[in-house]
Design a protein around this nucleic acid. Structure first.
Length: 810
RNA sequence: GCCGUCGUGGCGGAAUUGGCAGACGCGCUGGACUCAAAAUCCAGUGGUGCUCAAACACCGUGUGGGUUCGACUCCCUCCGACGGCACCA
């Protein structure tokens, strides 16, 4: 197909120009307002760039180019989140060193990203696998360790037989399969692990969500993940004297507790079970331990459990209630034990019905509906000292009473767990710790960082819990930095999240070898003003980053409590068949093909024209062609077939000036608010309008090039040059809309009778309300509809409409 | 089950504070140019009725109701889609 304009010449030309002139190098400029615009950096996979990547990148690029032209000092960097399993798996399969695979993939990604003409400052590129980068990832880990926020523990962790590796909780799917490869044999086994004490920051991670401008859905997901709930811990005494502590959010229902439940793993089960029940309880616990999470949560809707033979005393009424063991109570939450109030808890009610346990109503709903199974707020009944109180007051009073008697206290619980931070993999940052028999875990001295990954000949997992690094025996064997005695290096590595937790800070000062970032630079650029990326990172990446950032903040290394001020999630791009793009469906669109055939500007512009940035939307090659045709039409507005400029110096008509200034106004507003699709629609209106006119006045066409520049930067640069300018337009002043041309002299007024449009009047824009009313009533069309009616009410909105409310007479 | 987001032509989508629903693009139809086609340009394009057309009327933003002079927009009910969480006491 013949090209509609020479994008294949223009685009490489300007890309070369920008790189050679370092047009987009970011500088701290005290006189200018700063703007830090960040893309979630990609994992450079072997498959190359996907059309989803450039969606967010184009959005941020447009915004950055727009803001530069509006006088901002803009920081807009790109880099690589390059540790991770695929390169390691490839090494296992082929023997190629992951570093080499990574280098190659990065080269492909860089080429593809550069061919789209994004205005990144390439001198700030970071690569998480580069020792000069991970040196500081390790350094931050040591700060966490020294602050007591990194510790080792023997924890039951998810082990995937297929990957021969430990998985993090979040890497295990709800159906019990492995998130990476879909392996089925995933189960828990206890292993020594590194954990980060993110729970110490639960409250601040929750509260500080109020400081950021993020989509409500993301904030809500983080809140749910942190899972704060207020309640009370209450001590029940078993008959043998053991104290069973429970957590409840409804201390007001204590009088309705008719039994207790311990989690199967609860340590008191052993000590409380009576001889008669021991066999049944042991059998139940053994069965529960074997159950996968899948069985325990998904399939097992029917409650199970066993009475352990023991009783406890309800502290509020001294009632004797039986103790059961059941797997609907989890050891990992609260205290692993509950008081069961079947009348006001759905799960307890199910259990009680199945095992014929008593149900006692202690909360009366306000609307007098059935109290059994009622879990909302109401009025306490049959509840001693709190009888008659509404739920919130009842909670307060009973909690105070418990505290006074030493039987319990108000408590806050979180669902959030500590972050399992070690991986039994090769291709990750080595954890800079030496294990010494004398001194325990000892940090590698900071001046010895980076602790480099040793080369291995064989990357395959050991198959045991020993990580592959254990094979590098010379590397593992070392001396203790503290006492000089024999030591062993930690062989676990960090998870992929580690490098991405702080990369936005390294961009500020990527070549600094004395600190992870220079404090002055940090203060100048932070926080990130706009962060764009996929919603799949809603919880983990963003929560982990926020956690590290807060630790660095507390240690005085960064100046803001939150890293990312504003967050926008770009939507997914589906295939033309409205399905998720995938190789197996054969609906994958390759950016290389698109750029070869239509050019980068058309690709960028189409992705922005598809719809709102946040929306999920299907790819359409015809839609792409429509945008490509538009760019061709735009080109022909300026040049004839030989590429000779046809712009003239004729005085522009008022009509053209009006559409120009409307376009300036609309494009300015919509670019600022990231509504790129409507900004492009307005540019199309402009081009359509100019096309209908014979003249090509420079006074109108030249400012339009600047409006186009953030969207189709190569085309705009080329036209700018043809118009006689030298150098790049990247820092030209953004056009200002002249209000004179936005004001309309006359407006069209809608005249309604009973809410239906019956006539339209063209009147002077500043016509008064009374005058407007007169003219509306004088309209023959309107009079026709008013015949035989009496006007009851007149609504006059100057500049907009007149509505006459009339009723039929007689 | 719970939380969140969202339902607008044949399709992607627009609509400022409650004020002409369907901007812009795709597709489709007709026309110009052409030997012909492609490309390009011009015109039309929510549905229904009125024997065609014009004019006009009525219907129309997932469903049913409500508030209002007026509802895509605000409130309630239900239905559907997508995303997240999931026995969290």
């Amino acid at each position: 197909m013949r090209k509609k304009y020479p994008f294949d010449v223009i685009e490489p030309k300007w890309q070369r120009y920008w790189l050679e002139h370092k047009t987009f190098a970011a500088r701290e400029e005290p006189g200018k307002p700063k703007l830090y615009v960040l893309d979630m950096f990609p994992y450079p996979s072997g498959a190359g760039l996907h059309v989803g990547h450039p969606e967010g990148y184009t959005a941020t690029d447009i915004y950055c180019r727009f803001k530069r032209m509006n006088g901002y000092a803009v920081l807009h960097p790109m880099g690589w989140d390059a540790f991770g399993l695929p390169a390691e798996q490839y090494a296992i399969d082929t023997g190629t060193h992951p570093a080499e695979t990574t280098r190659k993939n990065i080269a492909t990604f860089r080429r593809q990203i550069q061919m789209l003409g994004f205005s990144y400052d390439w001198d700030r590129e970071v690569d998480t696998t580069d020792p000069s980068y991970y040196r500081w990832t390790q350094w931050i880990f040591l700060q966490l360790f020294k602050a007591g926020l990194a510790y080792q523990a023997e924890v039951p962790v998810w082990w995937c037989d297929g990957c021969k590796a430990v998985l993090a909780n979040e890497e295990v799917n709800a159906d019990g399969t492995c998130d990476r490869k879909g392996h089925k044999d995933v189960y828990r086994r206890p292993l020594r692990q590194w954990l980060l004490r993110i729970t110490a920051y639960a409250e601040r991670l929750l509260k500080d969500l109020d400081l950021v401008n993020w989509p409500e859905s993301i904030k809500e997901q983080q809140r749910n993940w942190i899972g704060r709930s207020e309640g009370a811990e209450v001590d029940f005494r078993a008959e043998n004297g053991e104290v069973i502590r429970v957590f409840t959010t409804r201390p007001d229902t204590l009088f309705g507790a008719t039994y207790m439940v311990l989690a199967p793993e609860h340590p008191l089960v052993d000590r409380l079970t009576t001889a008669a029940q021991r066999a049944a309880v042991e059998a139940y616990r053994a069965a529960a331990a074997k159950k996968s999470e899948l069985e325990r949560t998904q399939l097992e809707k029917e409650k199970t459990g066993v009475f352990i033979g023991a009783y406890a005393t309800n502290p509020v009424n001294n009632e004797r209630i039986p103790i059961w063991v059941a797997d609907y109570v989890m050891m990992g939450y609260g205290t692993g034990a509950i008081m069961a109030v079947p009348a006001h808890d759905t799960r307890d009610l199910e259990f009680a019905r199945k095992f014929n346990l008593p149900v006692r109503v202690v909360v009366q709903p306000i609307d007098n509906s059935d109290p059994v199974g009622f879990t909302g707020d109401g009025i306490s009944v049959n509840s001693g000292l709190i009888t008659g109180l509404p739920t919130p007051e009842a909670k307060k009073k009973i909690t105070a009473w418990l505290e006074e008697k030493g039987l319990g206290k108000a408590t806050v619980n979180y669902k959030l767990r500590d972050w399992l931070f070690s991986r039994q993999r090769y291709w990750g940052e080595p954890i800079p710790i030496v294990h010494c028999v004398q001194c325990g875990p000892v940090p590698v001295p900071e001046d010895q960082l980076p602790l480099r990954l040793p080369d291995l000949a064989d990357y395959t997992p050991t198959g045991t819990a020993e990580p592959p690094l254990a094979k590098a025996t010379d590397w593992v064997r070392t001396s203790c930095p503290k006492c000089g005695g024999p030591g062993q290096r930690e062989t676990n590595t960090m998870p992929q999240w580690a490098g991405s937790c702080w990369y936005y800070l390294r961009y500020l000062d990527p070549h600094n070898d004395r600190a992870f970032v220079d404090p002055a630079k940090e203060r100048y650029w932070m926080p990130v003003d706009l962060y764009v990326g996929g919603a799949e990172h809603a919880v983990l990446h963003l929560l982990y980053s926020r956690f590290w950032h807060k630790v660095l903040y507390d240690l005085g290394h960064v100046s803001t409590p939150e890293p990312f001020l504003r967050l926008v999630n770009q939507g997914m791009i589906l295939g033309e068949d409205n399905q998720k793009m995938s190789k197996s469906r054969g609906n994958v669109i390759n950016p290389d093909d698109v750029v070869r055939e239509y050019g980068a500007d058309a690709f960028r512009m189409y992705e922005m024209f598809m719809g709102p940035l946040e929306a999920t939307k299907p790819w359409s090659t015809q839609g792409l062609e429509g945008v490509y045709r538009f760019l061709g039409r735009l080109w022909r507005l300026y040049c004839d077939e030989d590429g000779t400029l046809v712009v003239d110096d004729s005085p522009p008509t008022p009509q053209l000036l009006r559409v120009l200034h409307q376009t300036i106004q609309k494009v300015t507003e919509d670019t600022e608010s990231l509504n790129f699709n409507t900004a492009i629609a307005q540019m199309m209106i402009f081009v359509n309008e100019v096309t209908t006119q014979p003249a090509r006045p420079r006074a109108v066409l030249e400012p339009f090039v600047l409006l186009l520049a953030p969207y189709a930067p190569h085309l705009a640069e080329e036209l700018w040059e043809k118009l006689g300018h030298t150098g790049s337009l990247a820092y030209e002043r953004w056009p200002q809309a002249d209000p004179q041309w936005l004001r309309a002299d006359t407006v069209e007024i809608v005249v309604q009778v009973n809410g239906r449009v019956r006539d339209k009047l063209t009147v002077p824009a500043d016509l008064s309300a009374t005058e407007l009313e007169q003219r509306a009533l004088a309209s023959p069309r309107v009079q026709e509809f008013l015949r035989g009616c009496r006007v009851q009410k007149k609504i006059v909105v100057p500049g907009k409409l007149v509505n006459l409310v009339a009723t039929r007479e007689g």
